[in-house]
Design a protein around this nucleic acid. Sequence first.
DNA 1: CTAATAGTTAGCCATATGGAAAACCAAGCG
DNA 2: CGCTTGGTTTTCCATATGGCTAACTATTAG
Lengths: 116, 116
Amino acid sequence: MENQALGPPADLDALYHAMSDPTRRAVVEQLVAGPAAVSELAGPLPISLPTFLKHLKVLERSGIVRTEKQGRVRTCHLQPERLGPAEDWFASQRRRMERRLDRLADLAEDLERNPQ
Amino acid sequence: MENQALGPPADLDALYHAMSDPTRRAVVEQLVAGPAAVSELAGPLPISLPTFLKHLKVLERSGIVRTEKQGRVRTCHLQPERLGPAEDWFASQRRRMERRLDRLADLAEDLERNPQ
DNA sequence: CTAATAGTTAGCCATATGGAAAACCAAGCG
DNA sequence: CGCTTGGTTTTCCATATGGCTAACTATTAG
């Protein structure tokens, strides 16, 4: 449930930190459409290339993006399997919360049926 | 900024930022079990109360936790409906990615069947 | 009324983050 | 070879973050 033995340690800190910035989410949304070179990704964005590179490094540290250089072009790919754990933590909390609320509702019903 | 008509409104910033810290995730995991007072939440944690309060404010800004004070006790509640959007963004990206990979697989199959 | 309890404010500090400009490689092209 | 293109490194800046202590306010228990 926690660590699925995929690449680097699936650390939620880095993952959620990576996704907490709109620029970086935009990059991910681009990469969903397919791999892209650094300049293709940076082009439309209103920030300088070096600044973009910092964002890219944050994404790489989080494991959500992998990059490789061929010649002078660095291509960026999304690692879809890293999206799972991020989604899972939220889903897990939500489910636990719902179960609790259900139990609470049951209890309330019992009390109503069988008042003290 | 450049929101490309993809995904929900960008208060995801605050949400993901809130979840990028282990202390704050621990608080959320506690609150899933039910509402709790500030000191109950802060007690087990290895940080000072003022520091804890800062974390709590981050959680409140993100909308994931609501608090109310009665007498001298401030009680913290989880807002489960805020967990949904956070989960959804990831789910949405993952699904888009999967669809793309499926199309790609189909294409590869076609090529194999019908080589150029 | 006094004292303990539960938070809150106010400083202070070190590090991290997001941003920019400038100068610097290295791979291709003509 | 020399120029251009695509990245990279370095340096610098302002602000945010996470942590602390100390001092303060406001309830409530005795």
